Simulated scan of single mutants.
Amino acid sequence: MTVRAYVAIGANLGDARAAVLRAMTDLDALPGSRVVSRSSLYRSAPVDASGPDFINAVVALETGLAPEPLLRELQRLELGAGRERPYRNAPRTLDLDLLYHGDAAMATPALTLPHPRISERAFVLLPLAEIAPDRVTQAQLRQVSDQRIERL
């Protein structure tokens, strides 16, 4: 049995565009998973972070992986792309955030679903609205309208 999961992808170090595109390919190759929809790429200013602009996207993933095993796979891909975590919201070579895993609602030390900051970030809401308009409200989009973001 599979569920639809949504994964936000971002990078702002190195060749960020290539890292995001590579992550889309890598996500499609996860065990028991396949990418069924990809948003456009977006350029956004860092939010609660420093460094260069980010390249962002969101993918819809049909997966047989449960939430925490999927999270471990996402973290493995981040490490493979050279992700380091020297401090909170540090610039990064790759950031993969599990936004939704079906309709799962959970809060463990490792994972909170749905992702707790979805509605605060234009770089998540705009690409998510592109591929899953039922997951994003106009009110949410208005709340982030002051954040700088452009579709590439």
Rank of each mutant, 00 (worst) to 15 (best):
L21R: 15
L74A: 02
D26N: 13
V58G: 05
D97H: 01
L152T: 09
H115M: 10
R142P: 03
P91G: 11
N89P: 11
R83C: 06
R151I: 08
D97C: 06
V36F: 02
A45F: 11
S33D: 07
S33L: 09
G51R: 05
P109L: 09
A16W: 04
L74G: 04
M106E: 02
T63P: 02
T25C: 11
A132K: 14
V36K: 04
A66H: 08
E84G: 11
R135G: 03
L126S: 08
E84Q: 15
D95S: 08
T108V: 01
P52H: 14
L152G: 12
Q138K: 15
D15A: 15
Q138P: 10
T108Y: 00
G51Y: 01
G80S: 12
T25I: 11
R121A: 08
S119L: 06
S119W: 05
H101M: 04
E78Q: 05
E150Q: 14
P133G: 13
P86N: 09
L74K: 07
L113T: 01
D26A: 15
L126T: 03
V7H: 12
L141D: 08
D28S: 13
R151V: 04
A81E: 13
G102I: 11
F123E: 05
D97L: 01
A129M: 09
V59P: 00
G14N: 10
P133Y: 07
A11R: 01
L125H: 08
T63Q: 03
V47G: 03
V20Y: 01
R43W: 14
Y42D: 04
P67E: 06
R135A: 12
T63A: 00
D103Y: 11
A11D: 12
Q147L: 00
V124H: 00
D26P: 06
R72N: 11
M106F: 03
R151Y: 05
E73V: 03
Q75Y: 06
A110M: 07
V59E: 03
T137C: 03
T137I: 00
R135E: 06
P116S: 09
A104V: 15
E68R: 09
V58D: 01
L141H: 13
Y87N: 04
P31E: 09
A29F: 11
R117C: 07
G32A: 02
G10N: 01
L30E: 02
L79N: 10
Y100C: 04
N12Y: 10
P46Y: 13
R148T: 15
D15V: 04
G102V: 10
S33R: 03
R92W: 07
V36A: 10
V144H: 05
E68H: 07
R76E: 11
P86G: 13
G10R: 00
S119N: 12
V136Q: 12
L125N: 04
N12E: 05
A110N: 05
L128Y: 04
G102S: 09
G64H: 06
P91C: 08
A19L: 04
A5D: 10
A8R: 05
Y87W: 15
I55P: 04
A110L: 13
I55M: 13
L79W: 11
P52T: 13
I9Q: 03
A60C: 12
I9P: 01
L27C: 06
R4H: 12
M106P: 01
R72I: 00
T137Q: 10
A23H: 04
L27P: 05
A110S: 14
D48V: 02
I131L: 11
E68D: 09
P86Q: 13
R38T: 14
A81D: 13
P114E: 07
P46K: 07
S40W: 09
L79A: 15
P127S: 06
G102Q: 12
L79S: 14
